[in-house]
Amino acid sequence: MNVLDGPTPVNLVATVRAVLPSLTPAAQSIARLILDDPGVVARSTITEFSAASGTSEATIVRTARALGFAGYSQLRFALAAAVARDEPERLVPGDLGPDDPLTDVIAKVARAESEALADTAAQLNPDRLGMVVEAVAGARKVDVYGVGASGLVAADMAQKLMRIGLPGHAYTDAHLALTSAALVRDDDVAVAVSCTGETPDVLAPVRVARRAGATTVAITNNPRSSLAGLADHVLVSAGRETAFRPGALASRISQLLIVDCIFVGIAQRTFETSDAALRATRDAIDGFRTDYRRRSRSSS
Rank of each mutant, 00 (worst) to 15 (best):
A112W: 01
D143Y: 03
P205V: 07
S50M: 03
R17V: 07
D95Y: 01
A26K: 05
A110K: 09
A158S: 15
N2E: 09
R240N: 02
R294K: 14
D119P: 05
S180C: 07
S73W: 00
V19M: 06
D188G: 06
R279L: 12
L12G: 09
R279H: 13
S226Q: 07
R294N: 12
L117R: 10
I219L: 11
P205G: 06
R111C: 11
A112N: 15
L129C: 07
S150C: 10
A42V: 01
L75E: 00
T24I: 08
S150H: 03
N11M: 11
L23F: 11
V191F: 09
L23N: 08
T55H: 03
S50L: 08
A149Y: 13
A182C: 11
R297C: 14
I34K: 04
D119A: 11
I30T: 01
T45P: 09
Q159D: 10
Y292A: 14
R224Y: 15
P98Q: 14
P9T: 08
R294E: 10
P205H: 07
A248D: 11
I258M: 02
L20A: 03
A82V: 03
V217R: 03
R111H: 13
M157H: 02
D100F: 12
A31V: 10
A231W: 05
L257T: 03
A280F: 08
A14N: 09
G97I: 12
A238L: 00
R269F: 10
A64W: 00
V234M: 07
L230Q: 12
A149K: 11
T281E: 07
I253A: 10
V133C: 07
A70H: 01
L124H: 09
L152W: 12
I219N: 04
T199M: 06
A243P: 03
S56M: 09
N2Q: 07
A121D: 02
A137W: 02
S251V: 02
A78F: 00
R297A: 15
V83R: 04
L124P: 05
G6W: 04
A212C: 12
G239A: 02
S298R: 13
V16I: 06
I60S: 06
V208Y: 06
D100H: 02
L230C: 11
A70Y: 02
F244K: 12
L203D: 06
L235E: 08
V132D: 05
R85A: 14
L227Y: 07
Y145N: 05
Y72R: 00
S114C: 14
N125T: 06
A18L: 02
P246L: 05
T290F: 06
D283Y: 05
R293Y: 13
S298T: 11
